[in-house]
Structure formats: C-alpha cells, structure tokens
Simulated scan of single mutants.
Amino acid sequence: MSDSTRGVAALLLACTVWGLSPLYYALLKHVPAAEVLAYRSLWSLVFFVLILLAQGRLGLVRQAIAGRQVWLIGLAAVMIASNWFGFIFAIQAGHGMEASLGYYIFPLVAVILGWAIFDERLGRAQWVAVALAMLAVVGLTWGLGVPPWIALALAVTFGAYGVAKKQLDLGPVVSVTAEVVLLAPIAIGWLVFAGTQIGAGTWQTHALLALSGPLTASPLILFSYAARRVRMATVGVVQYINPTLQFGCAVLVFGEVFTRWHGIAFPLIWLALAIYSVAAIRQDRASRRVLSSAVISGTVVTKDSTLSPAKP
C-alpha cells in the first residue's frame, strides 16, 4: 500500500468516526450537555497526555502554555469548547440535521473569514458558492420562521477555531493538548460546584464518558496523518463525508423531520460545496503544474517565493 493510499484510508476513517459520532452522543442524552463537555475535556486530556508521554513530547505542551502564544491557545480552547458543546446539545435536543448543516456551511464560512481577516483572494466560483450558502440559510430562516442558530454557531465557532489555529506554530496533538489543559480547571470546577447527574453505580455511563477521550483524539491523529500524505483538494472533498453521515444519522436513525424547506436549503448547500470543491481541485492542479514546471526548469525556490517547499 502506497503512502498516499494509507493517507486516504486514514482520512476516510477519521471522517467516518466524526460522522457517526451522533450515535455515541445520543447514548448520553440522560447526562446534561455541559457535564458531557466537562468529561470530554478531561478524558481527552488524559488520552492526549498519554500519547505525548509515549512520544516524549509532553514538554512541548508546557513550553506552549508558558509562551507568548498562550492567549491564542486560550482563544482556540474557548472556540473548540463552544463547538463541542453546541454539537452535543444539538444531538441531545434532536437537532442533528441542523448540526450537519453547520459542518456543511463551515468551509464556506472559513473562506469568508480568510477573506476578511487574512486578506485572502476569492475567485468567482468561491463567491458564487458563498452566495448560494447564504441563500440557503435565508430560505431556511424564511421557511421555518427562525434562523438555524445551531448550524450558524457551529460553523462560526469552528471557523474562529481555525483562525486561531492558523496562527499557532504548534503540531495538532500538542496544540489540542494545550487547549484541554486550559479547559481542565473549568471542567473540574463545573463538576465540583454544579454537581453531577450521574449516579456512582452507573458504570456504563462512566465507561461511555471515558470513551469520549479516544473518540476525540483518534480521528484528529488520523486526520493529521492523512493531511501530510494527501493533497489538500482531496482533504477538502473527503471531509464532506462527516456532515453527510451526520445528516444520515439525523434523518434515518433519529427520525428527524425533513421539511420542504430543508429540501430546498440542503441541495443549495450541496451545490455550493460542489462548486467550491471543483474550484479548489482546479486551483490545486494548477499549483502543482506550476510547481512541477519550476522543478523541471531548475527554478530556485527561496523563502520569499510564492512557491515554498512542503514541510515534512
């Protein structure tokens, strides 16, 4: 099996775990969402610490928290905690379809944030995709009489998380470990002062909550492994497996109502993502052709060039 094939397999597995995670959180409906979030943060911390201890890299977390980037790590921690809470709440409240809509919208929100914050250029196809997504949200709001707040909150918090992560010079596992280190005191404080709804004898619930650690860490590690081995265009397309599976869980497993307004909004979102993905693939191929031409012609690539070597 080639390195690229292993990367695609890891990416598919990561997106599948994320996409089927509603089935897991549905088993914890009897536990308040804030409490599930607290346990998820603490068990994720345990799992990440064990991984970094085995790799001999735990000291990197201490350096990160003691460094100047701690405020960015704190911002990332707040955003990912908000995103986790929103998703858990959505599943428990029977809004899994809206959660999937949020993760469908996220790539387009990320495009807008990149344009607004990092002055990234948007092509015509990207603007068309963003316009279609906005039309879908407006149509859904008009039809249902209320904006899809959960979807918008999930898309915006995950987008803001991406903005913070883009400015962090840390590996994904080290970064997330530092984030849950900062969240741990809040999680412990919540469990101590707000109390717990879980009885001491309900070992099945505690076992499920402990599973949230590897369920959070494993797909992230797989995704990081894949991102180093496959093209970003491939990553962008394959990641839509995640909200698609979430959508399937909501409609086929949980029996959530799919109204005619959803029947209008979701196809618009899918069309927007198709346009966006095709444009991203074409841009990726064009970049690879330029890079290949530069290598063949013996062009020297410097730090200040627009073409930069990929990090190992």
Rank of each mutant, 00 (worst) to 15 (best):
G171C: 01
V180N: 14
G189H: 08
T141Y: 07
A164C: 04
D169Y: 00
A155H: 03
V173S: 06
T177M: 07
L170Q: 07
V138H: 01
A178R: 03
T177I: 09
V180C: 10
V146E: 12
L144C: 01
G145P: 01
G139S: 14
L154H: 04
L154I: 08
K165Y: 02
Q167K: 12
G143Q: 07
G139E: 13
V163H: 08
A184F: 14
D169C: 01
T141N: 06
V137T: 09
A136N: 11
L154T: 06
I186Y: 14
V163T: 07
A160Q: 08
T141Q: 06
L144K: 14
Q167N: 12
Q167E: 09
L168R: 02
Q167M: 09
P172I: 03
G162H: 06
V137R: 10
A160W: 05
L170K: 08
L182E: 08
T141D: 05
G189I: 11
A187I: 14
G145E: 02
L183G: 12
P185R: 09
A155T: 10
L152E: 09
L168Q: 02
K166V: 07
G159R: 02
V156F: 13
I186H: 09
F158Q: 09
A160P: 00
G139L: 15
G139Q: 13
G189R: 07
K165S: 05
G143T: 13
W142A: 14
V146A: 11
V156N: 05
L140D: 00
G171K: 00
V181A: 00
P148E: 10
